[in-house]
Nucleic acid binder design. Structure first.
Lengths: 152, 152
DNA sequence: CACAATTTAATTGCGCACAACTGAATCGCT
DNA sequence: AGCGATTCAGTTGTGCGCAATTAAATTGTG
């Protein structure tokens, strides 16, 4: 609130362009870096994020994975099918609630975590920023995301 | 360089997850906000970015637009076709270099800029961050993107 | 208990991002 | 001038993200 109302629309339009584009571009630049780093693991970046959640929490219903990743079943269903086809997870309907599908990492899925351990150091190094800056960035981004989600 | 090599792989994996996911999520959260704000203009967020470039620079070849947006023809060709179909731009092969296609905003495309002027203030307000923080964020993101692009 | 409302995954359709490739025009080198 | 290398836009194929819809199971309410 009170975002300096004296700035002209023209300048704000340009600033908006710069900020939102920079976020868009940074996100895609990271994606490209991950694409390379994850090629050996046979994972895409979103698949890697999903495996991360499963490595941390073990078996989870699709719904919970979606909450962690801020994704709905429209995105997750095909993604998890691909992970299943790759032999990294098992998907099975929950016995106590037949609506729910639980996802569990397989042996191969768990083993993949070992190969993933050396990925982050490469990525963080490539940012060219000191660790504390990167952590500050994360904090700011999380704050923005929380605000934007509540805004709707 | 010198990114505190004493941090264990395990923690780094978790940190990596948090940082890169937060970037991914923030980018998508912005996208969602723009989707709403741009619905009246009939533009998607990437289309809005392309129009921004054209509003600022006037006529440009596809190549130059791609440099500004960090996008290749595989993404831009269909996107610009849609803008053309919407009557917002004209696309014509350059007479002096038949390989190149120049893109020019039409009257309707230029007029759309007026409607876009009030979009950024809404977006920036929704971030819930003071302007100087948002500008600092932009600077950090640009620095990261530049580093990541050079890394490859 | 019956039945409407809600929850959960999955599917469909559209647009974007990117890799790999094609085809045409231009450039550069000899 | 000739011709291989490069540049540029476009196309194809794959995967992601999201809105809208569908189908089935569960919950809540009268």
């Amino acid at each position: 609130m009170t975002t300096l109302p004296e700035i002209p629309d023209e300048d704000l339009l340009r600033l908006d362009h710069q900020i939102c584009f920079s976020l868009h571009a940074a996100s895609r630049a990271f994606g490209g870096l991950y694409r390379d780093a994850l090629k050996d693991l046979g994972l895409t970046y979103p698949q890697y994020l999903a495996m991360m959640v499963l490595w941390e929490h073990g078996t989870l219903p699709v719904k919970r994975i979606g909450e962690h990743l801020r994704l709905d079943s429209g995105t997750l269903s095909p993604l998890l099918k691909r992970l299943e086809a790759a032999g990294l997870v098992r998907r099975e309907r929950s016995p106590e609630d037949e609506r729910s599908v639980t996802v569990t990492p397989t042996e191969a899925g768990l083993a993949l975590r070992e190969q993933a351990l050396n990925v982050p150091r490469r990525i963080l190094a490539a940012t060219g920023l000191p660790l504390e800056d990167v952590i500050a960035l994360r904090t700011m981004l999380e704050s923005i995301t929380a605000n934007l989600d509540n805004e709707v």
